[in-house]
């Protein structure tokens, strides 16, 4: 089937199998490989992207379902050279190691802060319940999100 999806501000029209998952649309058809696949069961959150601004697990959304909608992946988060404050927070607090969970974790955190701009540490932990990381023990991830929350949102 043919569908048109705006990804990181660019409209793409693609022809895919009906059963194509959003994550495969991004990775295999659009070559946007930051978004990763870490599980089969909607558990790990490595594939988290923003759909019309809200976090979703792109392994559990059909590409067909988002025809006409707008998707943001890690690749589209920075504005040119200017990083999103969540990216800055992860960098300054060493909120990543192997980097595999990072794109999903960052996108989940962006959505979290959008809905709750001043979370407590506990709210950050609860808010990231759908994203697994095996490297960091989450300590620095929580610090990174709190750091991002404390930073002023970048206004363009």
């Amino acid at each position: 089937m043919n569908l048109t999806v705006t990804v990181n501000g660019t409209a793409h029209t693609v022809d895919v199998e009906d059963r194509t998952l959003l994550v495969h649309l991004l990775r295999d058809h659009l070559d946007l490989t930051a978004t990763n696949i870490g599980c089969d069961t909607t558990s790990c959150g490595a594939c988290t992207v923003l759909l019309d601004g809200e976090s979703v697990k792109s392994c559990t959304v059909l590409a067909a379902s988002v025809d006409g909608q707008s998707v943001t992946t890690l690749e589209g988060l920075a504005e040119g050279e200017r990083w999103h404050r969540v990216q800055e927070g992860f960098r300054s607090k060493h909120g990543l190691q192997c980097g595999f969970c990072t794109p999903g974790m960052v996108m989940a955190a962006v959505s979290l802060l959008d809905e709750n701009p001043s979370p407590t540490a506990d709210q950050v932990r609860q808010g990231l319940e759908g994203n697994l990381c095996r490297c960091t023990g989450y300590h620095n991830i929580v610090a990174a999100v709190l750091d991002a929350a404390a930073a002023k949102p970048v206004t363009s």
């Binding site: 759909l51 559990t60 319940e129």
Partner: peptide
């Protein structure tokens, strides 16, 4: 329910 991503969908 689930997690924030699941609740968004």
């Amino acid at each position: 329910v689930g997690d924030p991503q699941v609740r968004h969908r």
